[in-house]
Computed example of a mutant assay.
Amino acid sequence: MQDTPIRPRPAREAGAQNLRGLKALVIGLGILVVLGTALVIGVVVKRIVAPEHAAAPPPAVAPRTAAPPFATELPGGAGSAIAGVAAAGGMVAIWLHDGQGGAVVFVDPRTGRIAGTAAPRH
């Protein structure tokens, strides 16, 4: 008989270990995809069945009173008119227009007092 050299077997352990790790990763990510999809579907179904705005009671509406919360006499002569109203930093800005350009009057809505006036110089 002839002596046949003994050949070492190829190492399959390293390759098999890599495949096991890859299989575990693919299975884990697949489970996460299924759970994420189920979560999204569950949230959509929950919002369709019980919308939040229908569950909340409607806000209470305060009854309107006959008198305004304050009364203020605005400066200005005859022929003055209110040309605009806006909220400005906790104040109510009222634009008074007269024949000479007008002015902006700032009123405190809590007290009704005039806090200041802005007008161009003539």
Rank of each mutant, 00 (worst) to 15 (best):
M1A: 08
Q2W: 14
Q2S: 14
D3R: 11
I6G: 04
R7T: 14
R7V: 13
R12G: 14
E13W: 08
E13G: 12
E13L: 09
E13R: 02
E13F: 11
G15V: 12
A16H: 05
Q17K: 14
N18F: 14
L19N: 15
L22C: 15
K23T: 15
K23R: 13
A24M: 13
A24L: 14
A24D: 10
V26A: 12
V26D: 09
G28V: 06
G28K: 02
L29K: 06
I31G: 15
L32W: 07
V33E: 08
T37K: 02
A38V: 15
L39F: 11
V40K: 04
V40M: 06
G42N: 04
V43M: 13
V45N: 02
V45W: 03
K46G: 12
V49P: 05
P51G: 01
P51H: 02
E52K: 11
A54Q: 01
P58V: 13
P58D: 12
P59E: 06
A60P: 06
V61G: 05
V61H: 07
P63F: 08
R64M: 06
R64C: 02
T65M: 08
A66P: 08
A66W: 11
P68A: 02
P69G: 00
F70W: 05
A71Y: 08
P75E: 05
G76P: 03
A78F: 10
A78L: 12
S80E: 00
S80A: 01
G84Y: 10
G84L: 03
A88N: 13
G90P: 01
M91K: 12
W95N: 13
D98E: 06
G99A: 09
G99P: 03
G101Y: 03
G102S: 06
A103G: 09
V105Y: 03
F106I: 12
D108I: 05
P109M: 01
R110I: 08
T111P: 02
I114A: 04
A118C: 14
A119I: 05
A119V: 04
A119P: 00
